[in-house]
Design a protein around this nucleic acid. Structure first.
Lengths: 204, 204
DNA sequence: GTCTATAAATTGATAGAC
DNA sequence: GTCTATCAATTTATAGAC
């Protein structure tokens, strides 16, 4: 067993712990939000001490940025894995359903729009901004295709569609339906998709 | 000039300051959110000292509760002032447009759903809960009427419609459109109403 | 690299003078 | 009732031992 292998094992353990830290961060962010999440919370959830946590991430901002980047990357992977045969609007529906399912299981929304503070912080994170722009680009492309095929409303600009679509991933109606209705996860997702694409009005 | 009049003047001044405090609280809540709003912020914005602020409101929770209650009361007043001739769906549209206009001018959404912490805090405020239930009742009534007239989607339960409707008052798409699009307030409100009632899909 | 202990700063809330 | 001054608790971040 060489020194190289030893280092490799160490690296693997380090990577595993990093994953555990990001998992814990994601869960706590989803439940308490950024402002109320403390580094003590994260360290305790992972089962390490706070200084160890700071060996992995140099600040709270850095940690949250890393968690958000991982989420965006998962969304990009999900988009990549979609069968090319799906219609553009079905791609949008599937991606939203995927995001809502993650949220219902205790994950985060992609759009951390809840507070200007968090948004401003993430805007300073260059790596995060790059990933978001990449995701934006992919989604805009799908929106343009869907519009060309007459599947999306021509009355709405691409901007409006993009932001309204993103906003559905963090729609508080999901939490309220979880708390105050008898709907299960699948029914909540179906209702949210219906509301997002068909609206509240009767279209008959 | 009797003592009674003197007291009355004092009371008036007290009331005026209370209004100023609630105005400041509303503006700060809208911009920073609950967790980041400090009592120092509020006191400084009003131009009084922190202990004076605590003479009016015994805690941060109490202060924020009062600001939320005032907002709900304004919504109830707005509903009350609507011409009875308006169709139910037009009433819903007008109320949402009113709420969005307040937000665009720096006010709060009615639905403080951003964090479970804030929601839990407000749930412990009996006076606030009573007002929200009253507002819920009024809106549910309008929804039922609109459904009976075939104006709202029959595919959606009243719960889903109610929560999806409320969620639009705090939709982050509004902030993103303000930041990244060239739309003015009226255009943003029109777009949000279109998205809410007609959805993203082409209905042709 | 991980821990115990602690520094430094912020903030909700109050005591006590006027 | 309003202010200055301050307490007590929390929290981000780090120093230094092992």
């Amino acid at each position: 067993m060489s020194i190289l292998n030893k280092l490799s094992f160490k690296d693997q353990a380090f990577k595993l712990r990093e994953t555990a830290i990001l998992d814990a961060t994601t869960a706590i962010l989803a439940s308490k939000g950024f402002d109320l999440m403390t580094m003590d919370d994260v360290a305790q959830e992972v089962g390490i001490s706070k200084p160890s946590l700071y060996k992995h991430f140099k600040s709270k901002e850095d940690l949250v940025g890393a968690a958000m980047i991982r989420l965006i990357d998962e969304a990009l992977d999900y988009l990549e894995s979609m069968p090319a045969s799906l219609s553009p609007i079905q791609q949008l529906k599937d991606l939203l359903a995927w995001a809502l399912r993650i949220r219902l299981k205790g994950g985060m929304p992609f759009l951390p729009s809840t507070s200007p503070h968090v948004r401003e912080m993430l805007t300073r994170n260059l790596k995060y901004v790059m990933r978001v722009l990449k995701l934006n680009g992919k989604i805009e492309e799908i929106i343009k295709k869907a519009k060309k095929q007459g599947e999306l409303s021509a009355a709405l600009s691409d901007d409006v569609i993009l932001f309204a679509y993103y906003a559905r991933t963090c729609d508080p109606a999901v939490e309220y339906l979880q708390l105050y209705s008898k709907l299960d996860h699948d029914a909540i997702i179906a209702a949210m998709l219906e509301v997002c694409f068909c609206g509240l009005k009767n279209q008959a």
